[in-house]
Design a protein around this nucleic acid. Sequence first.
DNA 1: TCCATGCCATACCTCAAAGGTATCAAGATC
DNA 2: GATCTTGATACCTTTGAGGTATGGCATGGA
Lengths: 316, 316
Amino acid sequence: MDLRHLRYFVMVAEEGHITRAAERLGIQQPPLSRQISQMERELKVQLFRRLPRGVSLTSAGQAFFSEAKAILSRLDHAVETAQRTARGEQGTLCIGIAPTAPFNPLVPLAIRSFRETFPRVSLILQEGLSNEIVGQFEREQMDVAFVRARQIHAEGVSVAALQEEPLVAALPSRHTLARTRTKPLQLRSLSSDSFIMIGPPGTGLYDETVAACRAAGFVPRLGQPAPRITSTLGLVAAGLGIALVPSTLQGARMTGVVYRRLQDPTPKAFLGLAWRRSNPSPILRNFLGLVRGMAERRAPEHHRAAKTANDDRSRT
Amino acid sequence: MDLRHLRYFVMVAEEGHITRAAERLGIQQPPLSRQISQMERELKVQLFRRLPRGVSLTSAGQAFFSEAKAILSRLDHAVETAQRTARGEQGTLCIGIAPTAPFNPLVPLAIRSFRETFPRVSLILQEGLSNEIVGQFEREQMDVAFVRARQIHAEGVSVAALQEEPLVAALPSRHTLARTRTKPLQLRSLSSDSFIMIGPPGTGLYDETVAACRAAGFVPRLGQPAPRITSTLGLVAAGLGIALVPSTLQGARMTGVVYRRLQDPTPKAFLGLAWRRSNPSPILRNFLGLVRGMAERRAPEHHRAAKTANDDRSRT
DNA sequence: TCCATGCCATACCTCAAAGGTATCAAGATC
DNA sequence: GATCTTGATACCTTTGAGGTATGGCATGGA
C-alpha cells in the first residue's frame, strides 16, 4: 500500500463521493475508483458501500478512516519536525557554564535570547569547570560551553573568545588594602597574601591568576582551594586569603568582601565559548552564531583580536 | 512522498548502510540510493551523512526516523483493526435486554460466550422494555435486543424466537392458592385477583398475560403497575396482587412470594432477539449467529416452528 | 606512492502501474 | 420510459521505480 492510497481513501471518505473526491484530488474519476477498489482488494476489507448516490464507509472503513487521517497528519508533523530539526529550531542543546561565567551579563543574555529565538529547543544547562567540561566534550555529552579557559585540551574542541574582562582583587574588608577603594591596586602589593583559587590548575581563572602574578613579578602563595565561587568569596570574607576574580563578579556583593581594581597592566579574565568542531548539530550552529554575534555587537573592537582556538584550523 | 520511501528510509537508517539495506529490501543499491536522495530533496532535509563506510543519520534524520517507524507500525495496526472490524471482531455492540430476560440462562450464557469469542468487542448492555427499545432501534442507538415481545413495531426490525418458556403464577405466600404447591393451578381460579403488570400495554409480558387470561375466559383485573420486575415481586409479596412471570423467574426467590405452575394449556412467555435488518454491522452478524446457534442447540425442536419476524421478508 | 577495496552516486534502459479518455451499467428522478 | 447521476470497465499513454553498468571518492595495506 501507498500513501497515495491513504490520501485518496481519506478524500473519498470525507466526500462520500468518488467523482467529487477525484475532482478535489485533481485526477479523474476512473483512476480513483480503481485505486480504491485495489486498496480494498489489498487489505481484503470492504471499506465503502456503493450507494445509488455516492459511497459510504463500512464500519471497517470508519475504523480505518480515523487511523488513516491520524497517520497522514502524523506524517506531516514528522516532516515538519525533521525540517525544524535540520534548521536547528528543535531538539536539545547541552550547555556547560563555568561557575563564574553567569555573572557576566553576556551569558544570561545570550541564553535568554536563544530561548526566545528557538523556543522549541530544550536547553540543558550544566555548571562545570574547564577541566570537567573536557571529559563531557569527549564523551559527546556536551554541545557547547561558556568557559574561562583560553584553551580546552580535548581533541577537536575550539574556543572562541567572547569577552576579556578585567580581573579585580577580592579582599577581606579588614584587609589593610581594603580601605582606599577608589585607587587601583598594585598587584605586587598582594604578593604576601594567600590566594584562594577556584578549582585545580588547568582551569581558566587559576591559570589567569598565576600568570598575572608571574607578570607582576611574584609567585602567588596558594591558600585554601575552593570548589565554587561562592565558597571562594566566603573564604575571602573569613579572612583566609584574597582572590582575583572577573570584574563582573562585583555584582555578587558579599558582606566582608571588598573589590579593588588593579593597576595597569590590568590582568584579564577570559570568557569564551567552546564546542566540538566535528559536532554537526544545527542547533549548535545557531547557538554559536547567536552568541558570537551578540559578543561582537557588545565589544566589536576587542573581538577580532581576541578570537582564538586551541589549534590552527580554527574555522568551525 | 510514499510509504515505500518511509520503509526504505527506516531500513537504511537501521542498517547504516545503503548496500546492505538494499539487499535486505530485495532491491539493488542504485535505486535505493536514488530513493533516499529523492526523499531528501522532497523534504528539503538532509537525512543522512555520507561517510566513507556507510551512512549515518543526521539529527533531523534521527527525529524523522523515530516518527517514521511509529507511522509504519501504526499503519500495520490500522490495517489489522480494519480487518478485525470487517470480521466483526472489534468494535462496539449495543445490546438491549428486557428486564425479565436475564433470568433465562440463555441470555447471560450468550453474552458471556460472545465476550469470550470476541474479546475486542466492547458490549454496551442496556435494560429496557420492548416499547422503549423501539425508539432506540429507530434512532440506531441499539444493535440488538433480547425482548419478550413477539414483534417490535418499528420499520425493518426483525425478531427471531429464541425460546418459549411457561408462564407461572407468582402469588403472595398468604394467598389461598399458595398452599398446594405441587399441583398445577387453573389460570381461571385467579380471575378475581389483581394482576401486577410490568410496563404498559405493548410490552411482551403485558400482552402475553392479557392473552392468557382471555384464553382462560376472563379479563384480568389490573392492579398497581410496576416499572421493574423486582418491584413487581415486591408488590406481590406485599399482597397487592399476583403476576404471571416466565418460569425462569423462579430463580429470583423472594420471601413472601410463591410460584405455582399453571395447567394446560400452559400460557407461554416468549424470548426473542430483535435487530434492524438493514444494520450491516458484522459484529451484529456474529452476535446473531452465535445466539441463534446457541438457542437452536438448547431447543432444536422448538426453534424452527417458533421462528418469526414482524414482516414477511424475514431473512436477516 | 600506488593499487585494491568498499560504498555511494550517476547514466541509461526496461517495464509495471498510475492516470487519462471513452464508454458501460445500475439506480434514481421526473 | 427518458434522462441524469455515479461508479465500474476497457484500453491507451506516460510517469517513475527498479535493473545494469560504471564512475568517483575515501580508506588501508604493500
